[in-house]
Design a protein around this nucleic acid. Structure first.
Length: 424
RNA sequence: GGUGGGCUUCCCGAGCGGUCAAAGGGGGCAGACUGUAAAUCUGCUGCGGUAGCUUCGGUGGUUCGAAUCCACCGCCCACCA
């Protein structure tokens, strides 16, 4: 397999620093490469997934990934992106987040064949004057000002702190090149300026050639940033985004995006993806099922993916019950038999029903289906609230124990947001 | 440091001292239609078991009454130094 071609055909390559040699290096040698992650949260979300899938492909092709956790750079904040300042993280925070990151990454890449580093380890000992002399002297402000990410911020303003960010990221690459013979860097397309600064610094400091590539910024066909639903991120942590909802996120993608998403987020061969993406009318839904199943399997494992698939199909129907559509996905071997399982649940104690019972509006809020009582009330008024698949019309109603047939109730906000309320 | 401009609800942005929980747009949510899609149309979009309550960078003040006026502070932008 030609890994370079694979990456290219699947759409992973946005820009590359060394168009002539990258393919040669990737196909003829085994290299060590790195991708940086900001440890700003305790969980990754699907917005992080594209570089992870890229790493995965590279690792499977025999290259060695370095996962760099930006414990130091997170304290500075990359200017490319948001204008608001990032919250300052404590060292403990970063350590926790880094551990969580590693855990989640382990589902996508083999951590035994990967190197984990935290740039706080080398930045901590750096002396400012030394840094200025050794590293700062290698940078031309003229050039930095010309960088696209800086240019944009020049209009609205950029602090020196943020302006320096590319030096820090470049320094990372230099260290990794020196200590781990890391020769490639990958990152999001917004990282281009920082990444180029890195390859240049490596050349000047270590006298060695390095190269880099950026991944495209994922937008859905609407031109919106990918990875959010209901304005909130879709997390890999099942505590934050239930596996069912994770599955549903993929399942509900836009028709126009299925092919692209299959390329990025599944291992299915390209030829098959092209066929799936070309499916017409309702059959395209099978492609979405396959996407959702495969993506969920990667993030949460086969058993959970199967459960989510069957639970979702149980609710909404199977797109291809007879199995007419050919796929190499394991989903094909799952019997089209709906199971009532793995809906996101919420438990309440029977004590909460004491007295007058529990106000239905409050229950909608408590279980997370609505943001506030007002939100829940509006939902009911608008006819979007369901209890056991019947529209809730009376927002004053109180639920008592007798309402819990078999100890549970199913609430829905709209057709798709389900929560099973279990009485205990 | 000086001068000028700005800081409004998730975002952009309008806001005469009362009729402002605050126009309009975007986004989001829900309903109808569908294919658990898109497009379209409709409703909703601060909190509150609806009496009220808390918002317009912050703090004080003027006033019966302030997002709107004044003072100070903070932050951002532009030009000058």
């Amino acid at each position: 397999m030609n890994i370079y071609k694979e990456l290219k055909d699947r759409g992973f390559i946005y820009q590359e620093t060394d168009v002539e040699n990258t393919e040669k290096i990737l196909t003829e040698e085994k290299v060590t490469f790195y991708v940086g992650f900001d440890p700003t949260g305790s969980s990754l979300h699907v917005g992080h997934l594209l570089p992870i899938m890229g790493m995965r492909l590279l690792q499977q092709a025999g290259h060695t990934p370095i996962v760099l956790v930006g414990g130091a750079t997170a304290l500075v904040g990359d200017p490319s992106g948001k204008s608001s300042a990032r919250p300052i993280l404590t060292k403990e925070n970063v350590a926790e987040n880094a551990a969580a990151l590693k855990e989640q990454l382990s589902r996508f890449i083999s951590i035994d064949n990967a190197i984990f580093v935290n740039n706080i380890d080398w930045f901590e000992g750096v002396k400012y004057i030394d840094f200025l002399r050794d590293i700062g002297s290698k940078f031309s402000v003229n050039k930095m000002l010309a960088a696209e990410s800086v240019k944009q911020r020049l209009e609205t303003g950029i602090s020196y702190l943020e302006f320096s960010y590319s030096l820090l990221q470049a320094y990372d690459f230099y260290i990794l090149n020196r200590d781990h013979n890391c020769r490639m860097q990958f990152g999001g397309q917004d990282q281009w300026g920082n990444i180029v600064a890195g390859t240049e610094l490596v050349r000047r400091m270590n006298g060695s050639q390095s190269c880099a590539m950026t991944f495209p910024l994922l937008l859905n066909s609407q031109g919106e940033k990918f990875g959010k639903t209901a304005g909130a991120a879709v997390w890999l942590d099942p505590e934050r985004t239930s596996i069912f909802d994770y599955y549903q996120f993929w399942r509900n993608c836009d028709d126009a995006d299925v092919g692209k998403l299959l390329c990025y987020f599944t291992n299915l061969p390209l030829a098959e993806i092209n066929d799936l993406a070309a499916l017409e009318a309702p059959a395209i839904n099978r492609a979405k099922e396959i996407l959702a199943y495969e993506a969920t399997k990667l993030a949460h494992g086969k058993a959970e993916a199967e459960k989510a698939y069957l639970a979702a199909c149980g609710k909404f129907g199977f797109a291809d019950p007879k199995g007419d559509i050919i796929t190499s996905s394991e989903v094909a071997s799952i019997k089209s038999q709906a199971i009532e399982a793995d809906l996101p649940t919420y438990e309440i104690a029977s004590g909460e029903l004491a007295g007058d019972g529990m106000w239905i509006v409050k229950l909608f809020t408590d279980c997370g289906l609505c943001k506030s009582n007002g939100d829940a009330r509006r939902l009911i008024k608008g006819g979007g609230a369901y209890m056991n698949d019947e529209r809730v019309s009376n927002m004053d109603q109180n639920l008592v124990e007798a309402d819990f047939v078999d100890g549970s109730i199913t609430l829905k906000a709209g057709k798709k947001n389900i929560r099973k309320i279990i009485l205990r």
